[in-house]
Simulated assay, not measured.
Amino acid sequence: MEAFLVSTGIVALAEIGDKTQLLSLLLAARFRKPWPIVLGILVATLANHALAGAAGAWVTTVVGPQVLRWVLGGSFIAMASWMLVPDKLDDAGADKVPRLGVFATTVIAFFLAEMGDKTQVATVMLAAQYKAWLAVVAGTTLGMMLANAPVVWLGDRVLRRVPIRVVHRVSAAIFAALGIGALAGWA
């Protein structure tokens, strides 16, 4: 249960102000069809985070526990620093009409935007730390949905009220604490 709850919380916080959240806002403003967008985000996140979780689980089979502890600790501290750098959305092709429909366009755009993203990297690290693939993937997916679905339905009204800098700092502090904890051997 800890893996699920920690994964949900970390990803929900990390996603605020992230480029995929901005993409959610852009898709909602452009298409004004929330259900296919939210379902597309869910499908893309499940696929992306399932792969990331599998990579994290695989790492634990090839790296010894001491090396893994240092890699995870360093990775979490690096993630803390990364959280302090705000994302920007690339607007290339924003005015093209999708040929595949809103759902498929969302799945493809969201899956690609999530590649190498903070939340995907966090999923790899959490799966390696907790060795609980299903709990981590379920938690990170729920965290993504908690952060992105309201944006799709409520749009920029949500983003105007959320102090993104504060959320990024809190996220960075959590990642730093996880990194220090891993280096100290707490978990």
Rank of each mutant, 00 (worst) to 15 (best):
G17N: 11
S24P: 12
G181A: 15
Q21K: 04
F111C: 10
F76S: 14
Q120K: 12
A173Y: 00
G9C: 04
A3I: 01
K118V: 08
T123C: 10
A173I: 05
L39W: 08
V6N: 00
G139I: 01
V124D: 13
A149R: 04
L72H: 09
G64M: 06
A55D: 07
I16D: 06
K118I: 12
A147Y: 02
N48A: 13
L126Q: 09
L23N: 14
T105N: 14
A113I: 07
G53R: 02
L72Q: 11
R169F: 10
V121N: 10
D95L: 02
T20V: 11
F175N: 08
G9W: 04
K19G: 10
V158E: 02
V158Y: 02
P34R: 08
A122E: 09
F4G: 00
M1H: 01
V158P: 09
T8L: 13
R99G: 13
A113E: 13
G53P: 12
A184I: 00
W153S: 07
V6T: 05
A29P: 03
I77V: 15
A104H: 02
G64H: 05
I16S: 11
V158A: 03
A28R: 05
P65A: 10
H168Y: 06
A177E: 06
G17C: 11
N48D: 14
D87E: 12
G64D: 13
Q120E: 14
A47W: 06
L13D: 08
V71W: 06
S7K: 01
T141L: 02
A94Y: 08
T123P: 10
I37D: 14
L178G: 13
S81K: 10
I16R: 05
L22N: 10
G139E: 00
V59Q: 13
V151N: 07
G40M: 03
F111G: 13
D117I: 06
A50P: 12
L51M: 13
G56V: 06
S171D: 03
K88T: 07
W35R: 12
A29H: 11
R161K: 04
H168T: 03
L84R: 08
S171C: 07
F76Y: 11
I174R: 02
V71Q: 07
L42K: 04
R99S: 10
A184N: 06
A54S: 12
H49Y: 07
G73N: 06
T8S: 12
K88S: 11
R169N: 09
S24H: 09
A127T: 10
Q120I: 11
V151P: 04
L23P: 14
S7M: 00
A177T: 03
D87Q: 07
W58V: 09
L126S: 11
D90I: 04
V166P: 02
L84I: 09
G56P: 07
E2H: 02
D18K: 01
A128S: 15
P86F: 00
G143F: 03
K19S: 14
A78N: 10
S75I: 12
A44D: 05
W186R: 08
G73H: 04
P98E: 06
V151A: 08
L178S: 13
L26I: 05
L13N: 03
P150F: 01
M115H: 14
G155D: 00
S24A: 15
L146P: 10
S171V: 00
A173S: 06
P150S: 01
L134M: 10
R69I: 09
I37Q: 09
F175S: 13
W70E: 12
D95V: 01
